[in-house]
């Protein structure tokens, strides 16, 4: 059992060591929620960006409205909506999945803008060359535009990865046992909040630093001229 025994709080160091394993288990949940949310945001954002760029107003306009709505409402409301309202219509997901979906949905509105900027930065001549070679619009997008856009959008996407990570504690309100929720439960049981909360802060800093340096590494590794196609 996760919280099945009493902790010795007489010595902070001993207390810290004894709660580290369950905090780390919470951290794994945080990381899982981050990456699942980020993955959803990357996919949904690309779909939104493509829809918003559609030449037909009947497609682009609703897509713009939806992303605007998502951006203008707090994550917590979207989370509550998914968690409490969808089950009334028979859609019941586990709390973790609901939480990750809410994160992904919220951030897809932002990643869509990153995609848009990255796509618009591709020179007009690239589109013209693709057209002159008679590529379809889809092939132009997947083989000419996207491979060149990806290296440009890595830094901005990386920032959103870190933001998502820092928003994961919001999921605690729907009972997801991520790191902060675990720390709070430990605090409630022992009346010692200082140690678990400080540890969460420290662990968060480590995660953020690792994630940022990973993004920086990726940014420096990817060829600036675009992903080469094999």
């Amino acid at each position: 059992m996760l919280f099945g025994f009493e902790w010795d709080t007489s010595n902070d160091l001993v207390f810290a060591v004894s709660i580290l394993p369950i905090l780390l288990r919470g951290m794994i949940v945080t990381i899982e929620a981050t990456f699942l949310g980020f993955f959803v945001a990357l996919i949904l954002g690309l779909i939104f960006a493509a829809l918003k760029a559609a030449p037909l107003k009947i497609i682009s306009w609703p897509a713009g409205l939806v992303t605007e709505f998502i951006r203008d409402t707090p994550l917590l409301i979207q989370l509550f909506f998914l968690y409490y309202v969808l089950p009334e219509y028979g859609l019941v997901f586990p709390a973790f999945l609901t939480g990750a979906l809410a994160l992904g949905l919220q951030y897809s509105a932002y990643t869509a803008e990153v995609y848009r900027a990255g796509i618009e930065a591709i020179a007009k001549g690239q589109h013209e060359a693709a057209r002159a070679l008679n590529f379809t619009s889809l092939r132009t997008f997947t083989h000419v535009v996207l491979p060149q856009a990806v290296p440009r959008i890595v830094p901005a996407m990386g920032n959103y990865l870190v933001s998502i990570m820092k928003d994961v504690p919001v999921l605690s309100v729907v009972t997801v046992l991520e790191m902060l929720n675990v720390a709070q439960i430990v605090g409630d049981r022992t009346f010692n909040y200082l140690v678990p909360l400080s540890m969460v802060g420290g662990l968060y800093m480590i995660m953020t630093l690792v994630a940022s340096s990973g993004v920086r590494w990726l940014d420096q590794t990817l060829p600036k001229r675009g992903l080469s196609l094999k």
Binding site: A123, G125, A129, P147, P223, R225, G226, L227, S228
Partner: peptide, 10 residues
């Protein structure tokens, strides 16, 4: 094209 417009990633 005047600006060549080669695909830089290929």
């Amino acid at each position: 094209f005047q600006q060549f417009n080669l695909f830089p990633h290929m």
